[in-house]
């Protein structure tokens, strides 16, 4: 002890809250798990296959890109796993297996890595990949792609809840007895996972709550019935988008007020797309559009600084 040489001399603080990026991603994966289990239960084992292919290829593309670009390998932070899961959750169970592979390439390399990796992308990787897949292979991603057997629903149903307004009971939508993408139908499971993230302080309640509320209120006012409002938030990918897409760290505002704007904006744009465009579903595009406004939102919603003196006009 006399001649204790100090190997560590650093600037304060000398302690840490303990949370790591990897830990955060792991909690997101845990929160996403119930919706995945629900998807496999509803659509069968093929759903699990799609999820596995999507996750493995996302991790593979990130590893390959960093190897080719001679950059330190970051697959250990688990963000590629999250992206892979989210991509799979946004695909119908009927897609051919090469689709999640291509989708993961787009999400990881085109959207995330070439902009600087985790945190530096400006749009949601999984949603952008889905949008590109959607426009490139319309047949695999819409219409007849949703002709699938759904547990709990008699016969093969063809119409998604959005395409056939009022075709399902609200409770059916809530527990996922309807066609849709792998991860979006288990809404009760998404809610559980989302609440877990809110309780753990990983995401803010502001974005999902205000997105759902805004869509509900807008639809209620437009249709004149609360049932229509509930039907709107319980159909399509709104739940998944509200809890897991619009809250993506890299592509959502960092300020509390900004998060509120993000939530309201997503809800509003979803409503506008569903009502006035030729597309049946708008939640994912709404999130992508709001992603582009995030730098602006952050700039104008800076918290008030302690003791800030109001500038004289």
């Amino acid at each position: 002890m006399e001649e204790m040489a100090l190997k560590r001399a650093s600037s304060s603080p000398h302690i840490h809250a303990g949370r790591t990026v990897q830990g955060v991603m792991l909690e997101v994966i845990v929160a996403l798990a119930p919706a995945g289990v629900f998807g496999v239960y509803t659509f069968g084992w093929r759903a699990l296959l799609i999820i596995a292919v999507s996750v493995l290829s996302a991790v593979f593309w990130e590893w390959l890109y960093e190897r080719m670009a001679k950059k330190p390998c970051t697959v250990g932070d688990l963000s590629a796993v999250v992206t892979g899961i989210l991509l799979a959750y946004n695909l119908p169970v009927t897609v051919p297996l090469w689709m999640p592979v291509i989708g993961a390439l787009l999400a990881i390399v085109l959207v995330k890595m070439i902009f600087g990796g985790l945190g530096a992308n400006f749009v949601n990787p999984a949603l952008t990949a889905r949008a590109i897949l959607m426009t490139s292979w319309v047949g695999y991603m819409s219409g007849s792609a949703y002709q699938m057997s759904v547990r709990g629903v008699d016969a093969i149903s063809g119409a998604t809840p959005l395409a056939s307004q009022g075709g399902y009971e609200l409770w059916q939508l809530f527990v996922g007895q309807c066609p849709g993408c792998i991860g979006e139908v288990g809404r009760v499971a998404i809610l559980v996972g989302g609440l877990y993230l809110i309780v753990r302080g990983i995401i803010s309640w502001r974005v999902p709550a205000l997105m759902l509320l805004t869509l509900f209120v807008c639809t209620w006012l437009a249709e004149g019935s609360a049932h229509a409002g509930l039907y709107a938030i319980l159909s399509g990918g709104v739940f998944l988008a509200a809890f897991f897409m619009a809250t993506d760290y890299a592509t959502s505002p960092v300020t509390p007020v900004g998060k509120c704007i993000m939530g309201v904006g997503c809800g509003l744009i979803t409503f506008v797309i569903r009502r006035f465009s030729s597309m049946p579903e708008g939640a994912s595009y709404a999130v992508l559009i709001m992603n582009l406004t995030v730098p602006l939102i952050d700039r104008y919603t800076r918290p008030r600084v302690y003791g800030e003196v109001k500038k004289r006009a």
Binding site: S79, G116, G119, Y249
Partner: peptide, 8 residues
């Protein structure tokens, strides 16, 4: 590493 923009 990168800032992940968590806003913490």
């Amino acid at each position: 590493g990168n800032c992940v923009r968590c806003g913490g």
